[in-house]
Structures are given as structure tokens and as C-alpha cells.
């Protein structure tokens, strides 16, 4: 069973292999993502994060979810030596760089809590996998060609319990803001894909490592349990030392 809905302006795809999946299980996960969007979207004036940014709501008075996300953001900022920061130059907060992976991970947990074992949850290029695909094989995942907007891949990896996330800019000149160095030329790197134990971890480290520029792949190399694939503006990919383990369908990783 597979279904795609547009939530947060992005495609949300659920695919479940297990036969006992029901429409209600899908609805529950989609409803959760709608709730996340209504809470954390900085583009919605009624969202909780918008109320915080307007000074109408103090963090201490905010929901537990909001407090959790702020705590995770602070922890991520520390781990990445400041390269990940939800505080924008204008002083407002935008936790979307963290919330997407975190929410996908929660969506996957909801499916697991319903006894589902073989599925993926996919929001806008980032995804959490579980078990096997319809053919009983590992999930095959393409890394998107960053030089056009087609769904064409330049590398295939095989995943079963991992999360994968890609950070990048598909238009030369666009860039992720680097909070530590306003002058760094970010466009040298067009995409950085990270595979990790779960999509939340993969997403936050992909975002931070992308902001580090060419050093980002070395940051991923030093993180145990994470692998990365960086594509530069010349179409040259640099991969971490354990990355090729994932290009073989027979590789079984234990975390």
C-alpha cells in the first residue's frame, strides 16, 4: 500500500509492505504530519513557532514537543560546533532543519507501534526505512542527480533499517546559511547525502555537514555509524570510507 499527500508544501510518501496495514494507520501518520506542520511551520502565522517568534509565547509556556525540539536543536548545535543553528541572523527561530527528520522518525515509530515491519516514510527526499521491500529485498535508494530537477539517480544504495537524508542546493548560487562564516562559498558543494541509524540523525548531520563546505564529508567520516556521499559543482563525488558497504545489497550493518 502506498499513498502520497502534499503536506507542508512537500510530498509525504508512505509505503507499507505488511499485509495487515489499514487506511486508518496511514491516516494516523498523515494527521501527525499535519499537526507537526501546524506547530512548527514558520510560514504559518498561527503556528506555535510563529507565536514564539512574535514574542507572544515564551518557550517555557510552549508545548512539550516545542521544548523537545529546542533542546534537540541546542544539543545538535553543540555536537556540530555551531554549524547547526536554528537561530537565524534576524534573531528568529526556524527549527525546520531539524523537525523534518525528527517527524519522519516519529512517523516511522507510529507505524512500528501498529506492528508494521516493512515500510518507508519519505518526506521530500529524506526517508526512514524498515525491513524489506515488496520483492523481499533491501530497499533500493537512489541518490538524486543534483544537476537537474528530474528524479534521476547517480548512485544506488541498499538500506533496511537506516535513515537517509540529503542536503543541498540545486541552483548555483543558492546556499544554506553558514552561521560561522558569512563569507564561505557554499556553492562549491551541490549535495551531501548522509546515511545513519535513523533519519533524524542523518538529517541533522547532513544539514550541519553541508554548511561546513568541503570539510563536511570529513565531519561525517569522523562520526561513527554514519556514511556520506558529497557531490561538488564539478560532478565529482567524495564518499566516506564505509560508504561502499551500502552499494552492495548483501551488506548487513548492526548498530
Amino acid at each position: 500500500m502506498q499513498e502520497t499527500r502534499i503536506i507542508m508544501g512537500m510530498p509525504v510518501i508512505l509505503e507499507v509492505v505488511d499485509a495487515h496495514v489499514t487506511k486508518e494507520m496511514f491516516d494516523e501518520v498523515f494527521a501527525y504530519f499535519v499537526h507537526i506542520d501546524e506547530t512548527f511551520s514558520v510560514y504559518k502565522s498561527t503556528s506555535e513557532i510563529s507565536r514564539i517568534n512574535r514574542g507572544e509565547l515564551l518557550l517555557e509556556e510552549a508545548s512539550e514537543e516545542m521544548k523537545t525540539v529546542f533542546a534537540l536543536a541546542e544539543e545538535t548545535k553543540q555536537i556540530t560546533q555551531g554549524y547547526f543553528d536554528i537561530k537565524k541572523p534576524d534573531g528568529s527561530y526556524d527549527p525546520s532543519g531539524l523537525v523534518k527528520g525528527w517527524a519522519i522518525d516519529h512517523g516511522a515509530q507510529l507505524l512500528r507501534s501498529r506492528g508494521l515491519q516493512n515500510f518507508f516514510v519519505h518526506i521530500a527526499g529524506d526517508m526512514q526505512f524498515s525491513g524489506k521491500n515488496f520483492e523481499g529485498n533491501k530497499w533500493s535508494v537512489g541518490i538524486q542527480n543534483p544537476f537537474n530537477t528530474l528524479q534521476e539517480s547517480v548512485k544506488t544504495v541498499y538500506l533496511s533499517q537506516e535513515g537517509i537524508a540529503t542536503s543541498g542546493s540545486y541552483v548555483r548560487g543558492d546556499h544554506i546559511y553558514n552561521p560561522l562564516d558569512h563569507y564561505e562559498k557554499m556553492h562549491e558543494i551541490v549535495s551531501l547525502t548522509v546515511i545513519g541509524p535513523n533519519v533524524y540523525e542523518a538529517d541533522r548531520f547532513a544539514t550541519a555537514a553541508y554548511a561546513m563546505g568541503k570539510e563536511g564529508i570529513h565531519f561525517i567520516e569522523r562520526l561513527p555509524d554514519f556514511e556520506g556521499y558529497l557531490i561538488d559543482a564539478n560532478g565529482i563525488a567524495t564518499m566516506t570510507s564505509g560508504f561502499t558497504n551500502y552499494t552492495s545489497a548483501s551488506y548487513a550493518r548492526t548498530y
Binding site: M10, A124, W139, S153, T166, I236, T238
Partner: peptide, 26 residues
């Protein structure tokens, strides 16, 4: 020293594609 390669488009069918263009578009 990390391994490098020139990227090339794959013809193989995959279950899903990871990329950032979705986000850019959004």
C-alpha cells in the same frame, strides 16, 4: 584520503530517491 568518483546517471530502477530538490522547490 577519501575515495572519489565522477558521478554518472544510473538506469537501475529504485524504490525511492533521496535528494534536496524537493525541499528547494518547497
Amino acid at each position: 584520503i577519501l575515495r572519489q568518483e565522477a558521478i554518472s546517471v544510473q538506469s537501475e530502477k529504485v524504490d525511492a530517491v533521496s535528494g534536496a530538490s524537493y525541499t528547494s522547490a518547497a
